[in-house]
């Protein structure tokens, strides 16, 4: 309710079309780009996922129109998620859990 921004039906459908187009681009990338470009492909997928997450959070969940105090309260804790991701992605590439996992 903070800043009563103009966000009516027209804008909702615009965001929907945007999200659908981004998903369609992901499909095109998945089918067109070969496996020899695996790294570029994965980077593109992650970037497009973040774009979609931004669309959903900012407009559908209305976060873009909240007070900046509120936005920071919600978003800053995710720094811990990024930290965990960086640490475990690094560890994952170094660990050899294979012999352990095969037992299950």
């Amino acid at each position: 309710m903070a800043q009563e921004a103009k966000f009516g039906k027209k804008e909702i459908w615009k965001v929907f079309i945007f999200l659908s187009i981004v998903t369609a681009i992901e499909f095109v990338i998945a089918f067109v780009m070969g496996d020899n470009m695996k790294t570029i492909k994965n980077i593109l997928f992650v970037v497009l996922t973040v774009v979609k997450a931004y669309g959903i959070m900012a407009f559908f969940m209305h976060l873009k129109f909240e007070f900046s105090n509120f936005k920071m309260t919600i978003l800053v804790p995710f720094a811990f998620v990024v930290l965990l991701l960086v640490i475990l992605a690094y560890e994952g590439s170094k660990l050899n859990l294979w012999s352990f996992l095969e037992k299950f």
Binding site: F78, V81, L84, L85, L88, G92, S93
Partner: peptide, 22 residues
């Protein structure tokens, strides 16, 4: 936010196991 942390933990664990798997 707290639920998102749960999902983040699950997805990041998935990343760890996948990256460590040959």
């Amino acid at each position: 936010v707290s639920d998102a942390f749960t999902f983040s933990a699950l997805l990041i664990s998935y990343g760890l196991l996948r990256l460590s798997s040959p």
